[in-house]
Design a protein around this nucleic acid. Structure first.
Lengths: 233, 233, 233, 233
DNA sequence: TATGAATGAGGATTCATTCAT
DNA sequence: GATGAATGAATCCTCATTCAT
């Protein structure tokens, strides 16, 4: 597992220029990365709508008009932040998702990795969870599709576990979304975990999910007075 | 359980005037409620910062200056939406949290109730999850404390279950936050549940949590190098 | 002198209704007086343009719509404040201006009275000095004419003194304006007299004016090197 | 004396940028000067509170948002007008105040200079006399202190004259304020001097003050009951 | 390419004034 | 007559975006 927890150290990937604004130079990608980073931070701090171009420019140590050479609008920057964050997340998740270890181990690794990614991309995760509405319909579809794909892969792993009889029956894709949501708790409800150690948190998270997936609880519908028969799903 | 699921039908509570802007008339509370509803909807749709007073006024079928007779600023409306939503949620959760049924049943009721509340307060929940940053520090503390109290009560129920040996050991308050976060998935990740029936979702949610809490999965830490053998049938 | 200093004790005169809005009752004049007083205070505090009708109403312990029964607009209130203040000032100055004592004594009495009036009508004087611009052209002419008449009478007294050879030659009307301006210093430059006793101030004022009017200073044009000849005017 | 009256012809000093909004270019100071001039004129015409940013911008031949690159608020413009006007006044008064000529001559020069300055800074003087209330407490203290310093110097000259036995005894600082107030009559009571020639006015002013300061009028207090006999020939 | 300035639209908020009860 | 509410215009200020140097 060690290699799992540790691999989240890759250098931040550069942000490639969009196809219609052809990449001029390596420095260009560099600039885009600087802007994306700065924007992500400012968005996380003040929200997309309240962030001003001047603030972003200041955070990126650039001039506003200069920024406009790398994108066409503020919204495009938000898209940039989304796609860049998602790409990083997907990349970082990749080997954990595609491992060949037994499903039980893989699930643990995936969960831990999800947490690690959230640690690393904290502000990106924050922005992505909050600003979906600020994206245009088309950008939203385009950009979130990529993310959904990742969650889907997680669902596939769960389905695999179910096929092997390790996990109980339930909609595996919903289970995947649940897992993802739980991993985000660290970022989205910071007040609830403020006094927690990240490692402990990861362990609790893993245990919670593992039990939820394996299952063995008596699920008799609990209408009062009703006879409880041992229905297992 | 039936009576639990059904009770979430009380009329929306009126929004009382703040103490310093004394309630002038019964119509006054009415107006405040109209504003809170309208604002909640607009905030859910476009986000707090992007929502304009004109839009809120239009949604409330009022004139903008008229609205200013009922609060002092846009931010105060947001606070209103928060406190109003939270109060409703807490009220609706109350009997489920304070029931005397066996813990196992109570947990199920609570979860279903959480889902019901989220169905009913969908847009309020959305806004509350996204706009925490838009609240002033003091308003945030004041308003979220109330909510935290509710989650804490859930944690107490879980702790009770642990004491009874029904639930496995884990930080009960963290577990409560997890449960809350899972219930919010319906609202916060609508794309992931779009084609799901609300009832089915509730059932899946209950099962997921119940298993997670009861637990009996083999949690042998898979320390690197350790041979993983203990795979459950 | 005693009777001079003491007579400024008349009850505040009621403000009569304008001819076109016929006086309904004695209570009506009472209301107008209350409004004028309140408005004068608020105007003195925040300036005419920044004062709001609500503030004035609050100061008058009235409701805004009620106020509109006694005048037609905010500007009309300002006119009210002007005419009311001026009327009071003129009334209070009257006997001092029309006395039959020797000019030298009368001037002293007038100056002291000017100061007394300013003490009594402090806020009115303030407003009148600052808000001339806020009055409509016609109101300004109408209202300030009355005041100019008072200053003119003072000029006449000075002229009388000049005719008697007591005062030196100079434009007596300008002298009157000078005297008036000096009396206002107490109100208009409060920072400059803050640590002064009102009585001392009056004495300094009287001495200053008396010397200025009597005159005996060598007024030889003081071009350097020019021989100074004793020209007396 | 000639050189005194004539020197008030220096080009208007540029308005330097405040230290926290660093001066960007030479054009920048130019802009600030344009704004200060325009604002001073509009304020003189309609009063600070009634003047709108649009009007100021129009008078400065600028766009409103452009103006906001040079200051942060309307109030800051008012401060600008104050400090700029005061600085100009102080500069223009300086040599007259610090001359080495005999006190008697210097006083005349100072008075004439005060009048010249008021001619030149007419609108600034107007605004400064009327809008003290519109300044924030701190700005008021900061800005008016400078002005008070100037008046104080005038008081020192008067005190010097008293020490030399040329001027009669009185509070020299109060005398200075009186002189300042008299010089402002030209600006503050224009209706009273409308048909006067500026030169004649200056002459009258000088004579008035000189006599007031030199004095030798019999100041026997005319306590009631005392027989007034000592009438000057 | 760096940088100050321009532009025009729009946002929150506040008023004087008038209704309606 | 007292009182809360309505109205619509205006105000200050800020922005994203684009010029021009």
């Amino acid at each position: 597992m060690a290699e799992v927890t540790l691999t989240v150290t890759a250098k931040e990937k550069a942000v490639p220029a969009p196809p219609d604004k052809p990449r001029k130079s390596a420095a260009s990608d560099d600039r885009r990365t600087r802007i994306a980073t700065a924007a992500r931070d400012v968005f996380a701090e003040k929200g997309y709508a309240s962030a001003t171009m001047r603030e972003i420019a200041a955070a990126a140590d650039m001039h506003v008009p200069t920024m406009y050479q790398y994108f066409r609008s503020k919204e495009e920057i938000l898209e940039l932040v989304y796609s860049w964050t998602i790409n990083q997340a997907v990349d970082l998740m990749q080997d954990a998702l595609e491992g060949t270890a037994p499903v039980e181990q893989r699930i643990d690794q995936i969960i831990r990795r999800l947490h690690d990614v959230n640690l690393k991309l904290r502000r990106g995760t924050l922005v992505m969870n909050r600003e979906t509405r600020s994206l245009s319909r088309t950008a939203r579809d385009r950009v979130l599709g990529h993310y959904a794909g990742m969650v889907e892969k997680l669902g596939d792993v769960i389905a695999e576990g179910q096929a092997e009889g390790i996990f109980r029956e339930m909609d595996p894709q919903l289970a995947a979304v649940f897992v993802d949501a739980l991993a985000d708790v660290w970022v989205l409800r910071p007040f609830a975990v403020r006094d927690k150690d990240s490692e402990d948190y990861a362990a609790e998270l893993v245990a919670f999910v593992r039990n939820a997936l394996m299952g063995n609880a008596d699920m008799t519908p609990e209408t009062p007075g009703q006879t409880v028969t041992n229905r297992r799903n």
